[in-house]
Design a protein around this nucleic acid. Structure first.
Lengths: 92, 92
DNA sequence: AGAACATTTAGAAAATTATCTAAATATTTT
DNA sequence: AAAATATTTAGATAATTTTCTAAATGTTCT
Protein backbone atom coordinates (compact mmCIF):
# COMPACT_ATOMS: atom_id res chain seq x y z
CA UNK A 1 0.00 0.00 0.00
CA UNK A 2 2.77 2.41 -0.87
CA UNK A 3 3.80 4.44 -3.83
CA UNK A 4 6.60 1.97 -4.48
CA UNK A 5 4.42 -1.13 -4.20
CA UNK A 6 1.94 0.41 -6.61
CA UNK A 7 4.63 1.09 -9.22
CA UNK A 8 6.08 -2.38 -8.74
CA UNK A 9 2.65 -3.94 -9.13
CA UNK A 10 2.07 -2.05 -12.37
CA UNK A 11 5.42 -3.05 -13.83
CA UNK A 12 4.31 -6.60 -14.63
CA UNK A 13 2.35 -7.15 -17.86
CA UNK A 14 0.21 -9.95 -16.44
CA UNK A 15 -0.89 -7.72 -13.59
CA UNK A 16 -1.76 -4.87 -15.92
CA UNK A 17 -3.79 -7.33 -18.02
CA UNK A 18 -5.64 -8.37 -14.87
CA UNK A 19 -6.50 -4.74 -14.15
CA UNK A 20 -7.67 -4.33 -17.74
CA UNK A 21 -9.91 -7.37 -17.32
CA UNK A 22 -11.42 -6.03 -14.14
CA UNK A 23 -12.35 -2.84 -15.89
CA UNK A 24 -15.45 -4.69 -17.11
CA UNK A 25 -16.45 -5.42 -13.52
CA UNK A 26 -15.65 -7.70 -10.58
CA UNK A 27 -14.50 -11.21 -11.43
CA UNK A 28 -13.68 -14.33 -9.48
CA UNK A 29 -10.10 -15.57 -9.14
CA UNK A 30 -11.08 -18.50 -11.36
CA UNK A 31 -12.51 -16.28 -14.09
CA UNK A 32 -9.33 -14.22 -14.05
CA UNK A 33 -7.12 -17.30 -14.04
CA UNK A 34 -8.87 -18.80 -17.04
CA UNK A 35 -7.72 -15.84 -19.13
CA UNK A 36 -4.06 -16.68 -18.64
CA UNK A 37 -1.81 -19.57 -19.43
CA UNK A 38 -0.54 -19.94 -15.87
CA UNK A 39 -1.44 -22.01 -12.87
CA UNK A 40 -4.07 -20.71 -10.49
CA UNK A 41 -1.37 -20.43 -7.84
CA UNK A 42 0.60 -18.01 -9.99
CA UNK A 43 -2.45 -15.90 -10.73
CA UNK A 44 -3.27 -15.92 -7.04
CA UNK A 45 0.21 -14.57 -6.36
CA UNK A 46 -0.32 -11.72 -8.85
CA UNK A 47 -3.67 -10.95 -7.25
CA UNK A 48 -1.99 -10.70 -3.87
CA UNK A 49 0.59 -8.26 -5.25
CA UNK A 50 -2.18 -6.12 -6.70
CA UNK A 51 -4.10 -6.28 -3.44
CA UNK A 52 -1.02 -5.39 -1.41
CA UNK A 53 -0.59 -2.38 -3.68
CA UNK A 54 -4.18 -1.36 -3.02
CA UNK A 55 -5.13 -1.67 -6.69
CA UNK A 56 -7.82 -4.25 -6.13
CA UNK A 57 -10.04 -5.35 -3.28
CA UNK A 58 -11.48 -8.79 -2.67
CA UNK A 59 -14.76 -10.00 -1.27
CA UNK A 60 -15.74 -13.57 -0.66
CA UNK A 61 -19.20 -14.58 -1.74
CA UNK A 62 -19.63 -18.17 -0.75
CA UNK A 63 -17.30 -20.42 -2.64
CA UNK A 64 -15.92 -17.62 -4.75
CA UNK A 65 -13.72 -14.64 -4.10
CA UNK A 66 -14.52 -11.65 -6.24
CA UNK A 67 -11.86 -9.17 -7.16
CA UNK A 68 -12.63 -5.61 -8.05
CA UNK A 69 -10.66 -2.58 -9.20
CA UNK A 70 -9.73 0.11 -6.74
CA UNK A 71 -8.21 2.91 -8.75
CA UNK A 72 -7.90 5.61 -6.14
CA UNK A 73 -4.26 4.71 -5.46
CA UNK A 74 -3.46 5.58 -9.06
CA UNK A 75 -3.92 9.24 -8.17
CA UNK A 76 -0.53 9.18 -6.47
CA UNK A 77 1.02 7.88 -9.66
CA UNK A 78 -0.63 10.41 -11.91
CA UNK A 79 0.24 13.11 -9.39
CA UNK A 80 3.89 12.15 -9.49
CA UNK A 81 3.87 12.13 -13.29
CA UNK A 82 2.14 15.49 -13.38
CA UNK A 83 4.81 16.82 -10.99
CA UNK A 84 7.54 15.58 -13.27
CA UNK A 85 5.90 17.42 -16.11
CA UNK A 86 6.12 20.57 -14.08
CA UNK A 87 2.50 20.90 -13.09
CA UNK A 88 2.45 23.53 -10.33
CA UNK A 89 -0.16 21.68 -8.28
CA UNK A 90 2.38 18.98 -7.62
CA UNK A 91 5.67 20.76 -7.08
CA UNK A 92 7.18 20.43 -3.65
CA UNK B 1 11.24 2.08 -26.03
CA UNK B 2 8.02 0.21 -25.32
CA UNK B 3 5.15 0.55 -22.95
CA UNK B 4 6.55 -2.34 -20.93
CA UNK B 5 10.09 -0.96 -20.76
CA UNK B 6 8.73 2.39 -19.61
CA UNK B 7 6.76 0.81 -16.77
CA UNK B 8 9.73 -1.33 -15.81
CA UNK B 9 12.00 1.70 -15.80
CA UNK B 10 9.62 3.59 -13.53
CA UNK B 11 9.30 0.74 -11.07
CA UNK B 12 12.70 1.35 -9.49
CA UNK B 13 12.94 4.07 -6.83
CA UNK B 14 16.47 5.11 -7.80
CA UNK B 15 15.39 5.65 -11.37
CA UNK B 16 12.39 7.71 -10.32
CA UNK B 17 14.70 9.78 -8.12
CA UNK B 18 16.94 10.36 -11.13
CA UNK B 19 13.97 11.62 -13.12
CA UNK B 20 13.03 13.90 -10.23
CA UNK B 21 16.56 15.27 -10.21
CA UNK B 22 16.51 15.96 -13.92
CA UNK B 23 13.34 17.97 -13.51
CA UNK B 24 15.61 20.87 -12.58
CA UNK B 25 17.44 20.58 -15.90
CA UNK B 26 20.05 18.50 -17.68
CA UNK B 27 22.83 17.04 -15.55
CA UNK B 28 26.00 15.08 -16.17
CA UNK B 29 26.26 11.40 -15.24
CA UNK B 30 28.71 12.44 -12.54
CA UNK B 31 26.35 15.03 -11.04
CA UNK B 32 23.60 12.46 -10.94
CA UNK B 33 25.88 9.82 -9.48
CA UNK B 34 27.02 12.08 -6.67
CA UNK B 35 23.43 12.21 -5.39
CA UNK B 36 23.34 8.49 -4.71
CA UNK B 37 25.22 6.09 -2.53
CA UNK B 38 26.10 3.75 -5.38
CA UNK B 39 29.01 3.27 -7.71
CA UNK B 40 29.10 5.23 -10.93
CA UNK B 41 28.75 1.98 -12.81
CA UNK B 42 25.45 1.25 -11.12
CA UNK B 43 24.12 4.72 -11.82
CA UNK B 44 25.26 4.34 -15.41
CA UNK B 45 23.23 1.15 -15.63
CA UNK B 46 20.11 2.93 -14.37
CA UNK B 47 20.68 5.70 -16.87
CA UNK B 48 20.83 3.14 -19.65
CA UNK B 49 17.52 1.61 -18.51
CA UNK B 50 15.91 5.04 -18.51
CA UNK B 51 17.37 5.79 -21.91
CA UNK B 52 16.22 2.46 -23.33
CA UNK B 53 12.74 3.32 -22.07
CA UNK B 54 12.93 6.66 -23.86
CA UNK B 55 12.55 8.61 -20.61
CA UNK B 56 15.82 10.47 -20.98
CA UNK B 57 18.14 11.46 -23.77
CA UNK B 58 21.87 11.97 -23.61
CA UNK B 59 24.22 14.35 -25.30
CA UNK B 60 27.96 14.40 -25.01
CA UNK B 61 29.57 17.80 -24.55
CA UNK B 62 33.27 17.22 -24.47
CA UNK B 63 34.31 15.20 -21.47
CA UNK B 64 30.81 15.10 -20.06
CA UNK B 65 27.60 13.39 -21.04
CA UNK B 66 24.50 15.36 -20.17
CA UNK B 67 21.24 13.62 -19.45
CA UNK B 68 17.91 15.29 -19.93
CA UNK B 69 14.27 14.37 -19.34
CA UNK B 70 12.10 13.27 -22.21
CA UNK B 71 8.63 12.97 -20.86
CA UNK B 72 6.64 12.39 -24.02
CA UNK B 73 6.69 8.61 -23.50
CA UNK B 74 4.78 9.14 -20.27
CA UNK B 75 1.71 9.95 -22.31
CA UNK B 76 1.26 6.26 -23.04
CA UNK B 77 1.29 5.57 -19.32
CA UNK B 78 -1.17 8.28 -18.44
CA UNK B 79 -3.32 7.19 -21.38
CA UNK B 80 -3.43 3.62 -20.10
CA UNK B 81 -4.32 4.83 -16.61
CA UNK B 82 -7.01 7.09 -17.98
CA UNK B 83 -8.38 4.13 -19.93
CA UNK B 84 -8.52 2.05 -16.78
CA UNK B 85 -10.49 4.81 -15.17
CA UNK B 86 -13.00 4.57 -17.97
CA UNK B 87 -12.07 7.69 -19.86
CA UNK B 88 -13.83 7.37 -23.22
CA UNK B 89 -10.89 8.87 -25.13
CA UNK B 90 -8.85 5.81 -24.30
CA UNK B 91 -11.23 2.86 -24.58
CA UNK B 92 -10.54 0.37 -27.28
C1' DA C 1 51.89 11.24 -26.96
C1' DG C 2 50.87 10.51 -22.32
C1' DA C 3 48.35 11.63 -18.00
C1' DA C 4 44.04 12.74 -16.05
C1' DC C 5 39.17 12.76 -15.96
C1' DA C 6 34.27 11.14 -17.12
C1' DT C 7 31.65 7.54 -18.24
C1' DT C 8 30.50 2.94 -19.94
C1' DT C 9 31.00 -2.06 -20.56
C1' DA C 10 32.01 -6.78 -19.00
C1' DG C 11 31.47 -10.24 -15.93
C1' DA C 12 30.16 -11.97 -11.45
C1' DA C 13 27.62 -12.11 -6.95
C1' DA C 14 23.48 -11.12 -4.33
C1' DA C 15 18.68 -10.02 -4.12
C1' DT C 16 14.21 -10.15 -5.92
C1' DT C 17 10.53 -11.94 -8.65
C1' DA C 18 7.74 -15.21 -11.45
C1' DT C 19 6.39 -19.57 -11.76
C1' DC C 20 5.55 -24.37 -10.69
C1' DT C 21 3.81 -28.54 -7.86
C1' DA C 22 1.83 -30.15 -3.83
C1' DA C 23 -0.61 -29.40 0.19
C1' DA C 24 -3.76 -26.59 3.04
C1' DT C 25 -8.04 -23.84 3.91
C1' DA C 26 -12.77 -22.37 3.14
C1' DT C 27 -17.27 -23.16 1.36
C1' DT C 28 -21.06 -25.71 -0.64
C1' DT C 29 -23.44 -29.79 -2.01
C1' DT C 30 -24.98 -34.44 -1.41
C1' DA D 1 -19.78 -36.05 7.48
C1' DA D 2 -17.68 -36.78 3.17
C1' DA D 3 -16.90 -35.27 -1.52
C1' DA D 4 -16.39 -31.64 -4.64
C1' DT D 5 -15.11 -26.99 -5.89
C1' DA D 6 -12.53 -22.48 -5.40
C1' DT D 7 -8.71 -20.39 -3.87
C1' DT D 8 -4.53 -19.68 -1.18
C1' DT D 9 -0.15 -20.93 1.03
C1' DA D 10 4.36 -23.26 1.30
C1' DG D 11 8.43 -24.42 -0.57
C1' DA D 12 11.41 -24.96 -4.56
C1' DT D 13 13.40 -23.56 -8.97
C1' DA D 14 14.35 -20.54 -12.78
C1' DA D 15 14.66 -16.00 -14.58
C1' DT D 16 15.50 -11.30 -13.98
C1' DT D 17 17.42 -7.37 -11.77
C1' DT D 18 20.53 -4.72 -8.85
C1' DT D 19 24.86 -3.95 -7.59
C1' DC D 20 29.77 -4.43 -7.35
C1' DT D 21 34.84 -4.46 -9.07
C1' DA D 22 37.86 -4.21 -12.76
C1' DA D 23 38.83 -3.03 -17.26
C1' DA D 24 37.79 -0.43 -21.51
C1' DT D 25 36.48 3.82 -24.14
C1' DG D 26 36.31 8.66 -25.22
C1' DT D 27 37.84 13.32 -24.32
C1' DT D 28 40.78 17.04 -22.76
C1' DC D 29 44.99 19.09 -21.06
C1' DT D 30 49.89 19.49 -20.81
Amino acid sequence: MSFQSTFKALSDPTRRAILDLLKAGAKTAGDIGSCFDMTGATVSHHLSVLKEAGLISDERRGKYIYYELNLSVLDEITGWIAGLKGDARNEE
